[in-house]
Each structure stands twice: as C-alpha cells, then as structure tokens.
C-alpha cells in the first residue's frame, strides 16, 4: 500500500517538454473584417483541409500602425470564421505588447523579417528585434533518410538539410530548417526553411508535390503544371514569390 502511494506521488501530473511545430503566419494588411474574410474564404477554399482548425499567428507588422483592441477583435473574428485558430500575435513593433493582454494572445517573435513593398519602404526603419535563434551545431551535416516516407508520416530535420533517398508519399510531410532534397518521387508536402531561412530550397527528382513551402511562402498544387509534373524540379524563394524550375533542362 505504501509503495503504491509512493509511486503515485512520483508520477507527475504533467510533463513539460520543449518542442517545435510549424506555425502558419497570417500577415494582416488591413483591419477590415469583411475584406479579410473575403480573402481568407477564397484561399481556404483552394485547400479546405489544410486550413481547417489550423493554428495561425497573426503578424500585424504589415499594417504599419498600431491597431486598436476593437479592430483586432474584428480581425480575430474574421480569421476564426474562416476556420483558422489564432494562437499568437507577432509584430516587429514593441507596442504590440499592449495588445497581447486584452486579446489574450501570446506575443510571438516575428517569424521572418517583414519586407514592405517598395512604396512603403519609407517607414521600413521600424525596429525589428532579432529572433533569438538557438545555437546550431556548426556545419551540421544533412539528416539522411533512406526509407520511403509514407502517407501520414512526418520528418523534420532541425537546423539542417533533409535528404530523402526514397520516395515521399502523398499525405506525407518532409520538413527542414534548411533545404529539402528528395531523390525519388515527391508526392507529399515539402517544407524548407521551416524557421524562416529564405535561402532554403526544395529539390526533388520526380515532382508530384501537393504543397511546397519555403520560409512560410507556400503553394498548393491542385493540378500540377505539365512542364513540372514528374520532372526533376527545384523550388526557391525570389523575394516573396515562390519559383519552380525544371532541373537539368
């Protein structure tokens, strides 16, 4: 009896672990809930499963000003109605701290420094706090996986490249903070630069991807462009645009 109580006392009620998950960023350009909802329902319709109850962080950097709490309630309502779940707030500006409490949303560090379009460069002098990146092992060699990545499986190479020397099935996810290389068919999702490295690229030998994302900029392939389908392809980020090109063409 005593040993049982002792064991019960030892068993913790919870465990706290440090982990990382990918988080979708919603860049907020306007606080007009109608406009946001229109835009989101359009985007969500192209990939309904992908956004359903997806955790997102709202980046209010693009607004270029401090929105009021009421305005932000409108924005949050619109985002929720589109099916997403806002879980955090990010902004380059230190003043966003004031919004965090009334909105009951934690303040997250900005994911990738927001580059305002050319006409807005005038106010680009805003101070961006550097993301406190954890030190990575210097020159970490790529994580290599030789087995097929099957539907429902997810591989994440933290702080390095991911090399898969087999196929990536539909519904599988291959994620790396660096580049993703697939020496085989890529039928699932590939996410490179998962922590915001815009120089990361995706390479594959046979392109059938469902989704490709680099540093948070993604493209969903409902139909594959015929010039890419089944071909060796690389993807990279050119400013804010995701580019695809046939390799060795």
């Amino acid at each position: 009896m005593t040993t049982q109580t002792a064991e019960a006392a030892v068993a913790p009620a919870i465990d706290i672990r440090f982990g990382q998950v990918g988080l979708i960023q919603v860049l907020v350009w306007t606080t007009d809930p109608g406009a946001i909802l229109d835009e989101l329902t359009g985007r969500v319709a192209t990939a309904p499963k992908f956004f359903q109850r997806t955790a997102v962080s709202l980046d209010i950097g693009p607004l270029g000003r401090e929105p009021s709490v009421e305005e932000m309630h409108g924005v949050l309502g619109a985002v929720r109605r589109a099916g997403m779940c806002p879980v955090g707030l990010s902004s380059g500006a230190a003043t966003a701290q004031a919004l965090s409490q009334p909105l009951d949303l934690p303040l997250l560090p900005p994911f990738r420094e927001f580059h305002p379009p050319a006409e807005a460069v005038g106010r680009a002098a805003r101070h961006v706090e550097p993301v406190a990146a954890e030190p990575e092992p210097a020159g970490a060699v790529a994580q290599v996986n030789a087995h097929p990545v099957r539907s429902g499986q997810r591989l994440y190479a933290r702080g390095r490249d991911l090399v898969v020397t087999a196929m990536v099935g539909a519904g599988a996810e291959v994620i790396a903070d660096g580049c993703v290389h697939v020496y085989g068919a890529l039928r699932g999702r590939a996410v490179a630069g998962a922590r915001g490295d815009a120089a990361a690229r995706v390479f594959c030998q046979e392109f059938h991807a469902e989704l490709v994302s680099i540093a948070g900029v993604f493209r969903v392939f409902e139909t594959l462009p015929p010039e890419l389908a089944g071909k060796p392809v690389q993807a990279w980020l050119d400013g804010d645009a995701l580019r695809f090109e046939r390799l060795g063409a």
């Binding site: 087995h147 429902g152 499986q153 519904g171 599988a172």
Partner: peptide
C-alpha cells in the same frame, strides 16, 4: 493505394 501507403508507414514505425 493511399490507405495502403499509410499502413506501410505504420508498419515501418
């Protein structure tokens, strides 16, 4: 085929 791919993933893990 998709479901089998899923099952193969579970068999491997």
């Amino acid at each position: 085929v998709r479901d089998s791919d899923r099952i193969l993933g579970l068999l491997a893990s």
